[in-house]
Amino acid sequence: MGVDELLAGNKAARSRQARNRKRVRAARTRRGFVRTLIQLAGELLITAGVVVLLFVVWELWWTNIDAGNTQQNAVSQFARNFQGPVTPAAPQPAGTPPKNYGPPVVMPAINSPGEVFGVAYIPRFGKDYSRPLVDGVARAQLDTLGLGRYESSTMPGGVGNFAVAGHRQTHGAVLDAIDTLVPGDKIYVQTKDGYYTYVFRNDQIVLPTQGDVLLPVPTQKNAKPTQRFMTLTSCNPRFGTQERIIAYAVMESWQPASAGPPAAIAAQVAANKSKG
């Protein structure tokens, strides 16, 4: 083999080696770029997961604490301004019918969103359960003060439908246990005028568009009311909004503020007064 051929062969070999090195560097660059993209995507997914987790913690934990404090302050404020004894009246002798206080006093409709006009006590939800009743069902009311009155409904004790709404899992979770009510459970409502005792009757699952549950006689269009209803509405299922759960109750009795609270909630009424 001549010198020229040898030199040409070496030159071709060096050229092939250079091309091979370029291909290797290009492949490494592509692999590095892909690896960087994968790492970046992974970091973004982790970050998104942390953000979602923090949002869930905020929604299910912090909003309950924040709204719970606001609601307790509202109950304490109401109790501080309430005029009347906080101890129940002496029990009637055995065999004596319950004292009749006449027709219930019904305060005029407020129609002032955000105004607290009473307190609800539901022993089925816990012996310490007491939540403010506020006018209005917008987020401004339900996200802070809890149980909001539909402004189209009557006031406590009125003939017709006293209807309220509340959250289940967030912002105080005021109706979280609505599905645990059983027929015969008592729902007590305290206003400046006195105490109204409602008895739970039944519940119903409906679509969000079924507004007839708020009629003066629930679900009965054009019916003239003769009874005093209370209707509780909330989302269903607990972590969804696809449906609404409706709890119906009928008023059993009432007593003026001067008569003291019903014995079943007297301890909680006194506790709220002491906090006020």
Results as ranks from 00 to 15, higher is better:
167 H>I: 01
133 L>N: 05
67 A>N: 10
11 K>F: 08
111 N>D: 08
71 Q>W: 05
59 E>L: 01
223 A>N: 13
200 F>S: 02
96 T>V: 12
28 R>I: 11
245 I>F: 12
110 I>Y: 07
41 A>P: 06
232 L>A: 12
148 G>R: 07
237 P>E: 07
147 L>N: 09
203 D>K: 11
23 R>H: 04
255 Q>K: 11
148 G>M: 01
111 N>H: 14
263 A>K: 05
255 Q>E: 13
71 Q>D: 01
224 K>W: 07
210 Q>K: 11
196 Y>A: 04
107 M>P: 00
18 A>H: 04
19 R>F: 11
23 R>K: 12
135 D>V: 15
126 G>A: 03
225 P>M: 03
104 P>E: 00
140 A>S: 09
139 R>S: 11
109 A>D: 12
240 G>F: 06
141 Q>P: 07
47 T>P: 05
224 K>F: 03
198 Y>W: 08
264 A>E: 13
136 G>Q: 06
196 Y>F: 09
127 K>T: 15
139 R>H: 09
1 M>N: 05
109 A>P: 08
33 F>L: 14
188 Y>T: 14
111 N>T: 10
240 G>K: 11
160 G>P: 02
268 Q>C: 03
257 A>F: 03
94 A>D: 14
132 P>L: 10
174 V>Y: 00
61 W>H: 02
238 R>H: 15
101 Y>D: 00
148 G>E: 05
172 G>H: 00
47 T>Y: 15
204 Q>P: 10
10 N>Q: 09
253 S>W: 10
62 W>Q: 03
108 P>V: 00
233 T>E: 09
159 V>W: 03
57 V>H: 06
4 D>Q: 14
205 I>Q: 07
185 D>R: 06
146 G>E: 04
65 I>N: 00
169 Q>N: 05
121 Y>D: 09
100 N>G: 09
198 Y>M: 09
46 I>W: 06
203 D>H: 13
230 M>Q: 14
149 R>I: 08
151 E>T: 14
16 R>H: 08
162 F>G: 05
103 P>M: 00
264 A>S: 08
261 P>K: 04
40 L>V: 15
123 P>L: 03
192 K>Q: 03
82 F>I: 00
12 A>E: 11
44 L>D: 05
24 V>L: 13
231 T>E: 07
164 V>P: 01
273 K>A: 04
16 R>V: 11
108 P>Q: 07
141 Q>S: 10
116 V>C: 13
202 N>T: 10
214 L>K: 04
182 V>E: 14
224 K>E: 05
275 K>W: 05
66 D>R: 02
204 Q>A: 11
32 G>K: 03
252 E>L: 14
208 P>V: 13
108 P>D: 06
217 V>Q: 06
149 R>E: 07
232 L>S: 05
153 S>L: 07
229 F>S: 04
82 F>Y: 13
243 E>W: 11
158 G>W: 01
214 L>G: 05
265 I>A: 02
191 T>N: 06
172 G>S: 01
24 V>W: 12
88 P>C: 04
82 F>K: 05
3 V>W: 12
9 G>M: 13
13 A>P: 07
243 E>A: 08
263 A>T: 13
70 T>V: 14
117 F>T: 02
159 V>D: 08
1 M>E: 14
138 A>S: 15
112 S>N: 15
207 L>S: 15
27 A>G: 04
28 R>A: 14
